[in-house]
């Protein structure tokens, strides 16, 4: 009788899958960097006194928050080339990865704008006032006093955002990206769908380990940057 489930398959497929983590990391990493920059601009817009900028930034965040990743992926993948066609630019030979990065940059920026905004607001105004009172210029006050404190506040949320981005990134295979999930589906297809479960479990293990590593890394960062803060007991 044919074996429905072969546990050794799980361990055997991991070495085949791991090389494709490179793609996953490259795409996720680019999205994080670009998304943080864009998110910073959005946060600045939300905190500015120009009502229009505020409204636009908030509208953007709401739209991103209400759109499933897979829908955004397809919208970007089909929609952007279609728009470009109207202007006469041919985008059909662009790497799938670019579309993936664009999609997740847009998404991550929305998350980061909230993380940055709330971290900034968490710092009491008195810190800024004291800084300028001892003679720092506003820029120096932000750089040396506000930013370091805001960073510590933002760190846990940034870590969570990163982990969430990694998970959402698993959907990139749907537009054809051959990252670790894409490769897994290729293997399954070539096996005529046999042993699919084992490969999915292998994927789950890889992602799980990655997430735990990121969690521990950020916990370490929080400890390092949080000098001077009373440590809270973790339940």
């Amino acid at each position: 009788m044919e074996k429905y489930f072969d546990a050794s398959y799980i361990w055997n497929s991991i070495p085949v899958l791991l090389p494709f983590l490179k793609v996953t990391f490259l795409v996720a990493g680019s999205s994080i960097v670009l998304g943080t920059i864009f998110g910073l601009l959005l946060a600045a817009a939300k905190l500015s006194s120009v009502k229009l900028l505020q409204k636009l930034a908030n509208l953007y965040t709401t739209i991103m928050r209400c759109t499933p990743s897979i829908v955004l992926l397809f919208l970007v993948y089909y929609g952007v080339p279609a728009l470009a066609e109207n202007v006469g630019i041919n985008l059909h030979s662009i790497e799938t990865a670019i579309f993936v990065v664009v999609t997740f940059t847009l998404q991550f920026a929305a998350i980061m704008s909230e993380v940055i905004r709330s971290a900034y607001l968490a710092i009491p105004k008195g810190q800024f006032e004291a800084a300028v009172s001892v003679g720092l210029t506003p820029i120096q006050a932000y750089r040396r006093i506000i930013f370091p404190q805001a960073l510590v506040v933002a760190l846990p949320n940034f870590g969570n955002g990163m982990i969430a981005l990694l998970q959402e990134g698993a959907l990139a295979y749907t537009i054809g990206l051959i990252d670790i999930v894409g490769k897994a589906n290729l293997i399954i297809a070539s096996n005529i769908n046999a042993h699919a479960l084992e490969i999915y479990i292998a994927l789950a293990i890889v992602y799980w380990v990655l997430s735990i590593i990121i969690e521990k890394f950020f916990a370490m960062l929080e400890k390092f940057f949080g000098k001077g803060k009373k440590t809270l007991e973790t339940t």
């Binding site: 009491p124 008195g126 810190q127 006032e129 004291a130 800084a131 009172s133 006093i145 370091p148 404190q149 510590v152 000098k227 001077g228 803060k229």
Partner: peptide
């Protein structure tokens, strides 16, 4: 300041 406003970091 009334609330000291020491730089906490």
């Amino acid at each position: 300041f009334q609330n000291y406003n020491l730089f906490t970091n």
